[in-house]
Design a protein around this nucleic acid. Sequence first.
DNA 1: GGCGTGACTTATA
DNA 2: ATATAAGCCACGC
Length: 115
Amino acid sequence: MPSTSKNHTKTPERNLFTRIYKIVDQIPAGKVVTYGQIARKLGNPRLAQVVGWALHVNPSPIKTPCHRVVNREGKLAENFGFGGWETQQELLKKEGITFETPHKVDLKKFGTSEL
DNA sequence: GGCGTGACTTATA
DNA sequence: ATATAAGCCACGC
C-alpha cells in the first residue's frame, strides 16, 4: 500500500503541476483566470503561489496559455517569462480582451467564474 | 532532509 | 490606500 507518505513528485496524478496545466489548458479563449481561482480548484486558495511557480517552469508555454492567467487584481506579471508583460498583453488583445490599464485587465467582463 | 525563494492570496493593522 | 505576517507547494543548493 502506498504508505510512502506523499507521492514525492514524479507522480503526475498527484502532482499539482500537472493538474494546474490541465486547468489552464481548459481556459476558454477570450477569458482570463486568476491564480487564486486555479488554486481553489486544486483544493487550497493558498496554492496560488504554486500555480505561479508552475507557470514559471511551464515546459510548454504554447500548450499552456499562461497569458490567460493573471493575478487577483487582473494585473499581469511584471516578471513574465515570455519576454515581458507586453507579450501577454498582445496575446490577450488578440483574444478580444480589453485593458483598463496596460497592466490591468477587466476582470469584471473577462473573469471566468465558471471554470 | 533542511532552508530560502517564488509569475500569489488572504487577513490584520 | 500601503505594510506586514502567515500559508501552501515545488525547486535548487
